[in-house]
Design a binder for these strands. Structure first.
Lengths: 259, 259
DNA sequence: TAGTGGTCTAGACCACGCG
DNA sequence: GCGTGGTCTAGACCACTAT
């Protein structure tokens, strides 16, 4: 049997199906609150197997576009859009996705031995060399965020060689073959220190929205650790989650329901 | 062919495999940075098909426990990180998961026509009746968060009938058969208003960490809209994301703690 | 009872990483 | 070249929802 593993033009089938369904939903062909056709019908319509349709629908589900429930057809949710991996990964990608013009100015680059906390975050031995880059990031020229990025030596050397006007260090690293596949983010509040006050032109002690991020490659090797501090009112993080998306072996037994 | 759809004791196979692999990783059997056995080997070991093994591994992947990459075996990333849907959904569940004692005091319950924004969030017609509950939430008796929850009439009526000392409104609703399956979260900053100042005992204009959340049932019908405002230093939200999925969680950070 | 999504199987071929 | 994960198929049974 023929199964040429993707359409003739090189697209993967499940992605193609997902893309077409996504467009149909956004275009209003499937309005929020209405039901999607059954998997079997979609499989026939797109000329793929049911498994491939399910793969496509899983993508839409994890994006929060549709729900699913055994026994009934899938329901179309509104147009909620969680931030994609690349938008969460890089200030530049995020800014572009909202139609803004990102910018940045490097304030300082330091090359020094890692402190214990830093070594831990990057999975290095105490005292291993790290590169610390302090940058102020702008939207349409206005400072909105201070970024403190820490790189292990092998990555830092690439960063150090970038042209000073490079807007996206992340994209430049990707172009150099560095892979970013997983990231852990922590979001909370922080108080402006002297650097923040100077670079963001805000009052001392100003409360800022802080995002700390640790990014790894497919091998689990840390490639970047960063602490970003945003002025109030400049950013909001959005996330979608569902019972099905993050289900794990957490079975709550019978009906011991409490109030 | 045999395919009894789950083990004899009623467990789903892919969950069982996922759970065993998770425990093995946490127990250190598969150390961080090492490789997992090939899918085929795992399939043989657990007596399931390769598809089921892949399903299990997809769960672990979306929890950030392992990565994957074509051509090489999966890499173990590290300990447990992701939090369950219910921990994210409810302050009570979250507090318990970190070993804290959650509490709450209802400040006011209002029943009135929805304003345009509220109607939009709950998918109701302008002026439809909604229930607004204002509560202060505590950890070990200390106020840490002000919660403004908005319910459509059919849900609000259930909430209104709850005993005044009900700690978890969410759990009570679940016990009444209300289904929570999807949530969209927005995290940013807000400034304390008069209610916040009064209930949290903080200075006027204090910057707070704000989480707004819209929760829907499997049909996509909104069941709750909530705006929660946390004192600085009391909470941190965590997100894990990868090219495949992202999971949001929240963590406790001791008051006044530094980063 | 019919329809639908959830689970599972047993194959197959493809694309990538590495020795 | 070979091992590995990624994609895809065709079919099956099960669990749940709605009629």
């Amino acid at each position: 049997m023929r199964q040429e593993q993707g359409t003739p033009d090189g697209e993967l089938r499940y992605r193609k199906v997902a893309a077409e369904l996504r467009e149909a939903i956004i275009a209003g062909e499937y309005a929020a609150g209405t039901k999607l056709p059954p998997e079997g019908t979609l499989a026939e319509r797109y000329g793929v197997s049911r498994g491939t349709v399910r793969h496509a629908l899983a993508v839409l589900r994890s994006d929060g576009l549709v729900t699913s429930r055994r026994g009934t057809r899938r329901t179309v949710l509104g147009g909620p859009r969680a931030q994609s991996f690349s938008e969460l990964l890089s200030f530049t990608n995020w800014a572009r996705s909202i139609g803004e013009t990102p910018g940045g100015r490097v304030d300082s680059v330091v090359r020094r031995p890692a402190e214990p906390f830093e070594a831990g975050q990057l999975g290095l031995a105490d005292g291993a060399e790290v590169h610390l880059v302090l940058r102020v990031r702008t939207l349409s020229g206005e400072p909105v965020m201070v970024e403190r990025s820490l790189y292990p030596a092998r990555i830092g050397e690439l960063v150090a060689e970038l042209p000073p006007d490079t807007v996206s260090h992340t994209e430049a690293l990707v172009a150099h073959g560095v892979l970013f596949t997983d990231a852990d983010h922590t979001i909370d509040l922080a108080w402006a220190d002297a650097d923040d006050v100077r670079l963001l032109d805000c009052p001392p002690g100003q409360v800022l929205l802080r995002e700390r991020r640790r990014t790894t490659d497919p091998e689990g090797a840390p490639v970047e650790w960063s602490e970003d501090r945003y002025l109030p009112g400049t950013i909001a993080f959005t996330v979608h989650n569902s019972v099905a998306a993050s289900t794990l072996g957490r079975h709550h037994s019978p009906r011991g329901g409490k109030g």
